[in-house]
Design a protein around this nucleic acid. Structure first.
Lengths: 338, 338
DNA sequence: CTGTTAGCGCGTTCAC
DNA sequence: GTGAACGCGCTAACAG
């Protein structure tokens, strides 16, 4: 594999001249420029990114880490779409993405810090966002350029998020308008900020209509279809009445549908269902399920864009920036009884 | 950020001694070993991975590239599960994963070669496998350690694959046993080896039962639900009869279901459907859809394992190795009329 | 415009 | 057992 020295020799110049040609310096005679290019061509020369990183002390690599267990990680295409979005921007700006999938928050934190301390990445995109997230604190402490996907409750950090509060609010309003009056909310992990936001949106909508917010109607389920199903069964057995479910994820919406079938409830006439994330198959369920569509691809693009901009101009890191993308309620039959 | 020199100074030794301690050399006095460890601790020293890479001329990073457009990339969790599997193994062996998502085969090829030529990765895991894949040839030519996910038809390469032929054969046999006699096959991109394999399995099953293989019943569709739907409509309008669909992907199976509803065909009594990939939601469709479950997570693990073993002992690269994982037919109502 | 020099941080001889 | 010296391949500062 040819090095910069080989090219220099062949072109009869010094390595630094070659380096300058590569960098596109303009104070280089057109002639030597050509000679160097020629030499690079014949030697099939490609700069060694590692050596370059060492010299420039940057890697042009962004770390992306997520912590999810088993199939739960990707049961919906959210993360995949996120990656596509990040990748798209990264490509255009000549950056690479280092992927790290951890099994839990602790492991994720270690991995993030390792990537940074080993100087493998210039910055991080992080998508876990717990209520009091030690990862976030650690990253701030290490002074790492990073962008959070999702909101953070305590520290002011660069972040990109979809409007969970607003989205849940609109979705709940929709159910209310359809005449459902006792709407249960099925949430995921109570420690995630996403959960918090969605619950809040739900509450807001109820209060705006002077509907009672019954705490017992807000339930937390394991992140699976079955988790949703069983949680609702339990709620039902507890004697609490509800005629609709606002689900914090499509999986829960499917669990709700299962529950409705199990109880012989007609959807949507006797029982309304709204999900979150709009998985591609939602329209093929019977009845088709209403869901909030999250712009994951765009989210990924914005996050990468934001991070790369900060990397290019570190000044920007200090001005807190929180990008919020709107999401869209896709109304289908499961919640449409009028 | 502390360097090896800082540690050396603080411990009153030379950098090389520190290096040896890190490498775990045994001919180092226990005492200096302790001193060095202490120094590393107090300085919070972490070796710079880039410098190490340059000195050792390896990166401990594996590139994973895929070429898929838009939502198609991840409409099913195949790739996500693949990544999880790869990641799991990579973590345990202290390797990182560099992710590259391209929009098409050409772009993917460029990206792969770039990663290698820039020496950003030690090896590649590649999952596109077209009938005559220029990427494969290029990788062989560049003498890159790589593992293919999926089969290759021309070159002998390290590969990990699920048993597509066998799986399609068993699935088709299942339909035959259920009494379906005119089974159409909906395939994806005819240039992909996966498609070829699945069609072959389908043909085998028919021939084994002395059923005619009607070429017109094998149709190729755009990779989407609607693509499957429209292709089947077209087939129907052409006058070709069929009472079941063997789909090369769950999306097509859903398209087939749509088609059945459109034509007023009862599933499974008048019309059988089998899909491929067993998306998590298949069991929630009405009727629940039979599908072939692919062990994507395991596939990812095997691929990474294989590649890392080869990297550890390059001799192994020359003995062709093709790992094939069995898949499983998950029978549900859409194909069960007996 | 171009060459020389000096690192970037670490691993690895080759000596003592 | 340990240190000094050199090299990995490239960039950057300083000359000229």
């Amino acid at each position: 594999m040819a090095t910069i020295k080989d090219v220099a020799k062949l072109a009869n110049v010094s390595p630094s001249t070659v380096s300058r040609v590569i960098a596109g310096s303009n104070r280089i005679s057109l002639e030597t420029k050509k000679r160097v290019h020629q030499a690079m061509e014949t030697l099939n020369y490609v700069p060694n990114a590692i050596a370059r990183s060492l010299a420039r002390s940057n890697t042009r690599t962004i770390g992306f880490t997520i912590a999810r267990e088993a199939g739960q990680a990707f049961s919906n295409p959210f993360f995949s779409e996120l990656m596509r979005g990040m990748s798209t921007i990264a490509q255009t700006r000549d950056y690479n993405i280092l992927l790290s999938i951890s099994r839990n928050a602790e492991e994720e934190k270690e991995k993030c810090l390792q990537l940074i301390r080993e100087r493998r990445v210039d910055g991080l995109i992080v998508s876990s966002s717990r209520l009091k997230d030690p990862l976030i604190s650690a990253l701030i402490e290490e002074n790492v350029p990073f962008v959070l996907i999702g909101r953070n409750v305590e520290k002011p950090v660069l972040s990109v998020n979809n409007d969970n509060v607003q989205a849940a609010r609109l979705a709940t309003q929709h159910l209310l308008k359809q005449g459902y009056e006792k709407i249960a909310f099925v949430s995921g992990d109570a420690n995630l900020v996403v959960s918090l936001d969605r619950v809040n949106g739900y509450k807001q909508a109820l209060m705006e209509q002077n509907m009672p917010v019954v705490p017992e109607r807000i339930v937390y389920a394991d992140f699976s279809i079955d988790g949703g199903f069983r949680t609702l069964c339990r709620l039902w057995e507890s004697g609490m009445e509800f005629d609709a479910v606002m689900a914090a994820d499509d999986l829960f919406a499917l669990g709700a549908l299962q529950f409705a079938e199990h109880q012989g409830l007609e959807v949507p006439s006797n029982f309304g269902i709204v999900g979150f994330n709009d998985s591609p198959l939602m329209s093929f369920i019977n009845p088709p399920l209403t869901s909030v569509k999250i712009l994951a691809y765009e989210l990924g693009m914005e996050a990468m864009e934001l991070l790369l901009n900060v990397l290019a101009d570190p000044e920007k890191a200090h001005t807190k920036k929180e990008i919020v993308l709107a999401s869209e309620l896709i109304v289908r039959r499961s919640s449409k009884r009028k």
